[in-house]
Design a protein around this nucleic acid. Structure first.
Length: 720
DNA sequence: AGCGGAACGC
DNA sequence: GCGTTCCGCT
C-alpha cells in the first residue's frame, strides 16, 4: 500500500479509485442525498418518507442549494439537481415515485450501499427516526481496507499519539458536514456552521468528539481526503464510536426495527440479529452483504479487528474473501469477482460472536423537524454569499459524552502498522471488487437510433445507434455485474453502466448487459456499489488535483427500458423493499446448493418478495445426496463453466478490462511467488483459521488457494 | 413537475 | 465517470 508514503494510510491501492477517474472521487449526488437524509438537521429539507428507500425533498431549492454548496456550484438549482437525479434512473440508483412530488426512491435492492450498511430508512410516518445511523457521510465513503492504525489513517501531520489528535481531526472533518467549504473562501460550510453558532454545534451528534481540536481552521487538509471518518469510526470502534452514534442521537445504534425498516436485510438470520451489524467494513463486498450475513468467524484475530484495526493477515483476508464470496452468492453476483481466486471456498458462515455494532445508541429524535415552514429563509436567488443558516441544530444532538470511548486504539498492542501478521512483502492486487450497476434499461428512445435530432448539435457522436434494444440479451444472464476491475486502475465510481456502452455498441458488439425484459429486475440483480469512492473532501479547490480527462465524445445515454416512462419496477422495487431480509446466506450452503442458480436469465426470477436472496433451491438434480467430494467437483465444474461463460460475456463487455486484470494477476503470481509461499505459514495451516479443520478435503486445496491469495494481497500491501 | 438529449466541464 | 447546464417537450 502506498499509503505510508504520501498519505500514511494502510490501504491497498486497490482500495482506492484510480486517479484516472477523478470524477468518481467527488461526492456523488446520491451520497449526498443520503447524507442529508441521515442528518436530522436536514429533515425539513429532505427526509425519508413512505416506503423504504423513498424520500421526499421537502425543500427542493434548499437541497439544491446545499448540493450546490457542496459542489461549489452556486448556480445549482433544483432543476439541475433533478436532472442529475434523473440520470440515476438509468443507473438505477433511484427512481421517481410517481405521483408524489419531489419524491424519489432509492433502488436499494439493486444498490447495496456497501458503506451504508446501516442506513436507516425508517419512514417518517412510522415515527422511526429518520436519520440514518452510521452512514458515512459523503466524506469518506471511500472504501478502504480497514486502516491498521490510526496513524495509518491520519496524515503525517496529525498528531497520532494523542487520542485527541485523532479524534479531533476526525471530528473536525466530520464537522464539515454536508456542505463543503469552497476553497475560494466562500465557505459555505462555515456559513452554515457559523449560522449554527460557532461553527460547531450544528452537527452535534457527530461532533461529539470534537472536544478540542481547535477550530476547524485548517483542518481541511489535515486528514487525507481519502480518509473516511466514518469508516474510521466504524473501524475503530464499534462501541463508543461517536459517529456510530453512540451518542445521544444514536437512535438506532442498533436498529430496533431492522427487519422492517431497513432496506437491508439487517437480520436475515435469526439469532443475534445482525451480529454483523457492525462488522468491520472490510470491503465493499463485505459491507454489501448485509452485515448480518457476514460469515465472520469469531476468530481470535477478529476481535482486534473489530476493535481497532485490521491487518492484512491471512485470517482477515480469508474472512474478507469469504465474505466477499458469500456476497457473491448471496446476491448472485457474478463470480467474476473471484476470478482471481477461483478456488477460494467460503465455508459455512459463522456468525460473529458478538456484535460490535453500535448498540445502545439511542437517538433521541427531538421534536422532529419542527414545522419546516418557519425557518426557510434561504432563497434560491441568493447564493452562497448569504447565509442561510437553516438548521439551528437541534440541541438534542448532544455530543457523545465520552468521545474517547471510541478511541481507536483499543488494542494498542496490535498496532496494525507493524502488525506482526502482516504477511507478504510484495504488493499484490486483489481484485477491486468493484460493483457496478446494471446498465440502464433499454430506452424508449430506440426510435432515435441513428437519427440525431439533437437540438443543439447534429453530431451524433458515438453511440447513438447503439441500442438495439432487445437483442442484447446475450449477456445478461447474471444479474449483477460484479466486475473485478483490474487492480488499481479501475475507475469508476460505484456505479457505472458499462462505460463504453455507446461506442462499443456502435461497433455492433453488444456491450451492455441489458436487462432483457422490462425493468423487471430480478431480485438477483442486486447491485452492489462501492460507494466508497467519494470523498467529501474533494472539493472544488481540489479539482485540479485530478488530471483532466480527455475530452471525448459522450456516448449516448442508453435508452431506458420503460417505454413511456412507465416504471414497471416501481412495484417490484417496492416489494423488494418490503421484502423480508434475504435468506441468510450462510444458510446457503456454499457447497450444497447450487451456486449460480440465480445467475440465470431474469426469467428465472420468481419470487419478487425475496430480492437479493440467495438463489432458489437447487435445481432438481441438486447435489443433496451427493458425496461431498463429488459435490465439490460438480460445483467446481459448474463454477468454472459459469466463469467461462461470464468471461465470455465479459470479453464482449469489457474484455479488455478483464484481460488486464487477469494479466495482472498472472503477473502477480509470477512475481510474488516467493512470498506466496512465505505466507503459507499463515492461514493455511490447519486449524489456524478455525475452519480449516472442518473443511472437507476438497476444501483444503481451496484453502491453500485462499491462503495464497491472502499472501498475495499482503504482499501487495506491503509497501503501504 | 418531470423527462431526457446534448454539449461541456472536471 | 459524474455530473452541470440548457433546453425542448409533456
Amino acid at each position: 500500500m502506498k499509503t505510508s508514503g504520501d498519505s500514511g494510510f494502510a490501504f491497498p491501492d486497490w482500495a482506492y479509485k484510480p486517479e484516472s477517474s477523478p470524477g468518481s472521487r467527488q461526492i456523488q449526488l446520491w451520497h449526498f442525498i443520503l447524507e442529508l437524509l441521515r442528518k436530522e438537521e436536514y429533515h425539513d429539507v429532505i427526509a425519508w418518507q413512505g416506503d423504504y428507500g423513498e424520500f421526499v425533498i421537502k425543500d427542493p431549492d434548499e437541497v439544491a442549494r446545499l448540493w450546490g454548496a457542496r459542489k461549489c456550484k452556486p448556480q445549482m438549482n433544483y432543476d439541475k439537481l433533478s436532472r442529475a437525479l434523473r440520470y440515476y434512473y438509468n443507473k438505477r440508483i433511484l427512481h421517481k415515485t410517481k405521483g408524489k412530488r419531489f419524491t424519489y426512491k432509492f433502488n436499494f435492492n439493486k444498490l447495496v450501499l456497501v458503506n451504508y450498511p446501516f442506513i436507516d430508512m425508517g419512514s417518517t410516518g412510522s415515527g422511526v427516526p429518520q436519520s440514518a445511523p452510521p452512514v458515512p457521510t459523503g466524506a469518506g465513503t471511500h472504501f478502504r481496507f480497514p486502516p491498521s492504525t490510526p496513524s495509518d489513517v491520519l496524515s503525517p501531520n496529525e498528531d497520532l499519539r494523542s487520542p485527541g489528535g485523532v479524534f479531533s481531526a476526525v471530528a473536525r472533518r466530520m464537522a464539515r458536514g454536508s456542505v463543503s467549504d469552497c476553497s475560494d473562501g466562500t465557505s459555505v460550510n462555515s456559513e452554515i456552521e457559523d449560522a449554527n453558532g460557532g461553527g460547531g454545534e450544528e452537527r452535534g451528534g457527530e461532533r461529539g468528539l470534537n472536544g478540542g481540536g481547535g477550530g476547524g481552521a485548517g483542518y481541511r487538509s489535515i486528514i487525507h481526503p481519502r480518509l473516511s471518518h466514518e469508516s474510521l469510526f466504524r473501524m475503530y470502534g464499534g462501541a463508543g464510536n461517536p459517529n456510530t452514534h453512540p451518542g445521544p442521537r444514536g437512535h438506532q445504534g442498533h436498529r430496533v426495527h431492522p427487519d422492517n425498516l431497513s432496506p437491508f436485510p439487517v437480520s436475515p438470520l435469526p439469532g443475534p440479529g445482525g451480529a454483523g451489524l457492525l462488522a468491520p467494513p472490510l470491503s465493499p463486498a463485505l459491507s454489501m452483504t448485509p452485515s448480518s450475513h457476514l460469515p465472520y468467524t469469531p476468530s481470535p484475530s477478529l476481535s482486534p479487528m473489530l476493535g481497532s484495526h485490521f491487518s492484512f493477515n491471512p485470517e482477515d483476508m480469508k474472512r474478507y474473501l469469504q465474505a466477499h464470496h458469500q456476497s457473491v452468492y448471496n446476491y448472485h453476483l457474478s463470480p467474476r469477482a473471484f476470478l482471481h481466486y477461483p478456488n477460494i471456498v467460503v465455508p459455512q458462515p459463522h456468525r460473529l460472536a458478538h456484535d460490535n455494532r453500535e448498540l445502545g445508541a439511542e437517538r433521541e429524535r427531538g421534536g422532529g423537524g419542527g414545522g419546516g415552514g418557519g425557518e426557510r429563509e434561504r432563497e434560491r436567488g441568493e447564493r452562497l454569499g448569504l447565509n442561510s443558516h437553516r438548521h439551528p441544530s437541534p440541541l438534542s444532538q448532544s455530543h457523545s459524552p465520552h468521545p474517547h470511548s471510541a478511541h481507536p486504539h483499543p488494542h494498542p498492542h496490535s498496532h496494525p502498522i507493524n502488525h506482526p501478521l502482516h504477511l507478504g512483502e510484495e504488493p499484490t492486487h486483489l481484485p477491486p471488487f468493484k460493483f457496478k450497476l446494471q446498465p440502464p434499461p433499454l430506452g424508449r428512445k430506440q426510435r432515435d437510433v441513428g437519427q440525431g435530432h439533437h437540438p443543439r448539435h447534429s453530431s451524433l457522436s458515438s453511440g447513438s445507434g447503439s441500442l438495439s434494444s432487445s437483442g442484447l440479451g446475450s449477456s445478461l444472464s447474471f444479474g449483477s455485474d460484479l466486475s473485478s476491475a483490474s487492480g488499481s486502475a479501475s475507475g469508476s465510481g460505484l456505479i457505472s453502466n458499462s462505460s463504453s456502452t455507446g461506442s462499443l455498441n456502435s461497433a455492433g458488439l453488444p456491450k451492455i448487459k441489458v436487462e432483457p425484459i422490462s425493468d423487471i429486475e430480478s431480485e438477483e440483480e442486486v447491485e452492489v456499489t462501492d460507494i466508497s469512492d467519494e470523498d467529501p473532501d474533494d472539493r472544488c479547490d481540489e479539482y485540479d488535483l485530478f488530471s483532466p480527462r480527455h475530452p471525448r465524445p459522450r456516448p449516448h445515454q442508453p435508452p431506458r427500458h420503460y417505454p413511456n416512462g412507465t416504471s414497471h419496477d416501481e412495484d417490484l422495487d417496492e416489494d423488494v423493499f418490503k421484502a423480508p431480509a434475504p435468506p441468510p446466506p450462510g444458510l446457503l450452503p456454499f457447497f450444497t446448493s447450487q451456486p449460480h442458480a440465480s445467475r440465470g436469465p431474469p426469467a428465472l426470477k420468481s419470487e419478487p418478495a425475496e430480492p437479493g436472496d440467495p438463489p432458489p433451491p437447487a435445481a432438481p438434480g441438486s447435489t443433496k445426496c451427493i458425496p461431498l467430494k463429488l459435490r465439490f467437483k460438480r460445483r467446481w465444474s459448474e463454477d468454472q463453466r459459469m466463469e467461462a461463460m461470464e468471461e465470455q460475456d465479459d470479453k464482449k463487455v469489457r474484455g479488455e478490462e478483464m484481460e488486464r486484470a487477469r494479466e495482472k494477476e498472472k503477473e502477480r503470481q509470477h512475481n510474488g511467488g516467493i512470498e506466496e509461499n512465505g505466507a503459507s505459514s499463515g492461514p493455511s495451516s490447519p486449524g489456524q483459521t478455525g475452519y480449516d479443520g472442518a473443511l472437507p478435503l476438497a476444501q483444503r486445496g481451496v484453502s491453500q488457494e485462499l491462503h495464497r491469495a491472502t499472501a498475495q494481497l499482503s504482499l501487495e500491501n506491503k509497501d503501504c
